[in-house]
Design a protein around this nucleic acid. Structure first.
Lengths: 115, 115
DNA sequence: TACATATACCTAATGTTCTTATGTATAAGC
DNA sequence: GCTTATACATAAGAACATTAGGTATATGTA
């Protein structure tokens, strides 16, 4: 599992991206999906997950539908059209950022000249 | 420039990496180098930079030498052997993390079957 | 000469984000 | 009956970076 500080800041983008891949998803499902897709390397804890979802809802990037499945309440989250827009933007930003990081991590040997 | 939350958490790794590329570097130099190498897409502000450097020093990942250049004090930072070790580890972790992110951002279309 | 900009360091208050811990409740497996 | 899984939620606290402030020298320019 990656150190927390690394994951920090990427969770919102990850959630928006995953929500964009299905019609609707609920919190617990998102949490499991992230663990599954990253082989537990990224763990979306509940204390992080729910506040983010609530914030996205407040920002009107997602809407919700409550259902009861097998006697347990379930809250589905869906991207609004603004949310879809935002998901695309954040995805692009993340991919660009990742490229920038890779180029930074590509060691530039200090210029040396053998002449 | 990338949103702050994205950069958050990667700065320590970036600093260790850059320090590993030269014998010694001072804060202001690091700050300029990051801006230069990332074309201002990642900005290492002083309020972030100096606390990180001081923390690295406390953790004995770097040592310092103070010099006076042109009447201005300058504090050079150098990786210790622990620091070099840590720089490698953090670099690897970051590169792995970045790969995980990319695979997450690679949209998995919901399984549909045309039969 | 006065002023702005660049160099070079530093810290404190603040805000955001996430961790850790806790709480509630149902269902299923042993 | 106990543990684990499902499913939601919040609150205290830590960690990290932003913003804003402070000090001081050197350089370019109007």
């Amino acid at each position: 599992m990656y150190s927390n500080e690394l994951v920090r800041g990427t969770l919102k983008t990850i959630i928006l991206q995953l929500l964009g891949e299905k019609d609707k998803m609920y919190g617990y499902e998102l949490s499991k999906l992230v663990r599954e897709r990253t082989k537990d390397k990224i763990v979306l804890t509940e204390g992080a997950l729910y506040p983010i979802l609530h914030k996205l809802e407040k920002e009107k990037l997602v809407t919700t539908i409550q259902e009861v499945v097998g006697n347990r309440p379930r809250k589905y989250y869906m991207l609004t059209s603004n949310g879809k827009e935002s998901a695309k933007e954040k995805r692009n930003e993340l991919l660009e950022f990742v490229e920038t990081l890779r180029s930074l991590m590509d060691p530039k040997p200090s210029l040396s000249c053998s002449f």
